[in-house]
Amino acid sequence: MDIATVLETKDLCKSYYLGNDAIQVLFDVNLCVRKGDFSAIMGPSGSGKSTLLNILGCLDTPTSGEYLLNGLPVKTLSQSRLADIRNREIGFVFQNFNLLPKLDVFSNVELPLIYGNVSKKERHALVEESLKSLGLWERRHHRPNEISGGQKQRAAIARALVKKPCIILADEPTGNLDSVTTHEILELFKELNARGNTILVITHESEVAGTTNKVFHIRDGRLYHD
């Protein structure tokens, strides 16, 4: 694994168990994402793409195979260490935004920094930088129900970016947006990638996959390279 590789999987498998029956959903997945990549994993519903994203996001663990994040073998890490990695190394963007409804935009973006034990002064500076770079600074005191869908997703992206993670994992980031806003968000991803961010998008839409530089296809739990 060279220094520019952000994440790498080797023969990664995942099975779920229903009683004694094992249902395998991922088969020998080999994936490599390098620093500065803007990649997409595309596949139909039920193909195993979300399961793969959950493992890549350290939310779930593989049944077998290896997963290295920045060279670290994730499978062997404790829950506490995994929480640290999710906080420092990974920025999540979800289809349904997952903003906390009772907190304003500022506090939502601030959350990862609180869990990262960043001091108040530094937190404010980082949130300001993140919100300004996404054009949301004026909306910082608004709650999620007071802003548009596109703004919600931009707030979620600001939250993903605020800790300057090594990779942004986006799970169907445009799934809940209209076509105009979808275009706006995809342009934003391109811009972020141009600024040096590594982005991996999971999608079933070819339009979304088309904006990325590298596309992986997933079908029936098997990953195919373009």
Binding site: S80, A83, R86, N87, N98, Y115, G116
Partner: peptide
């Protein structure tokens, strides 16, 4: 529950 999941995804420890 989803909020708890989100907080964990953002890096919250058990203690948090």
């Amino acid at each position: 529950v989803r909020e708890i999941g989100l907080r964990k995804a953002l890096g919250a420890h058990k203690s948090d």
